[in-house]
């Protein structure tokens, strides 16, 4: 297969960016999207040109390192799939694809398709944990948690923090990411003590980072590689006003 690529190239955070056209030749349908880019990069490197910068690590859809826009959709057209797990058999010979980085005030572009997502770490720092020190925890089975509750918590905890939700949202809102952690911990007995302060502080941090608010459109859920549900955002909203009322 032959794939035509229009790729955003930007040398650094403050540099001016622009699209550059490339063609990926001899693409095998077994390749992953990133492997296709690897091959394009090999060609560039051999010509003494700098490779297209994109990030990845696990290449199996769990670390959340990879991610960019493939023709206007974060991680590309395949639902529930990170771009590292997207395979070229989903495309046709001759397809023309546009690759852009996530764009948001909270995620400044570092280079080409790589953005700075440290804002997510800071949102977690604001309260995305239970305050227990190592040692001294009671026996694990002393805390009973119903299977359904555990499963629901796991649904929320499955977030990989890739940022596709922010990328897809017209408001560049981080509500899905933030609410997934809030929901995970608010469902479990271990998370009750800090429940109120957690939601207030995490939302405050999310706003400080420059992310927008949620318009309840659910583009985030649609592009989320882990299918994190909009329900999490409803939970966050409810937790939020409850926390205000009880504070």
């Amino acid at each position: 297969m032959k794939i035509h690529l229009k790729v955003w190239r930007q040398a650094g955070p403050t540099a001016h960016g622009q699209f550059v056209n490339y063609t990926a030749e001899n693409v095998s349908p077994h390749m992953s999207f990133l492997e296709m880019l690897d091959v394009v990069n090999e060609g560039l490197i051999r010509k003494g040109q700098e490779a297209i910068a994109f990030d990845s690590d696990c290449r199996e859809g769990i670390c959340g390192t990879c991610g960019f826009m493939v023709s206007g959709i974060p991680h590309g057209p395949e639902p529930h799939t990170t771009v590292c797990q997207l395979h070229m058999r989903k495309f046709k010979d001759g397809d023309a694809l546009t690759l852009e980085p996530w764009r948001s005030k909270g995620f400044p572009v570092l280079r080409d398709l790589i953005v700075d997502r440290s804002a997510f770490d800071r949102i977690i720092q604001a309260g995305g944990y239970t305050s227990v020190n190592t040692g001294g925890a009671q026996d694990a089975n002393a805390i009973l948690i119903g299977r359904d509750t555990a499963e629901a918590a796991m649904d929320s905890a499955a977030c990989i923090g890739c940022g596709a939700c922010v990328a897809a949202c017209k408001n560049a809102s981080a509500a899905l990411f933030t609410s997934a952690k809030i929901t995970h911990l608010s469902l479990l007995p271990q998370g009750q003590v800090e429940r109120g302060t957690r939601v207030l502080n995490m939302v405050e941090r999310m706003d400080m980072e420059g992310f927008g608010s949620c318009s309840n459109e659910g583009e985030c859920e649609a592009v989320c590689p882990k299918g994190i549900s909009l329900r999490n955002i409803a939970t966050m909203n409810r937790e939020y006003w409850k926390a205000i009322l009880s504070s």
């Binding site: 826009m69 023709s71 206007g72 959709i73 974060p74 859920e221 649609a222 592009v223």
Partner: peptide, 10 residues
């Protein structure tokens, strides 16, 4: 520069 609706669960 290019943005599409995601469809699906949206």
């Amino acid at each position: 520069r290019m943005k599409k609706w995601a469809g699906g669960a949206s």
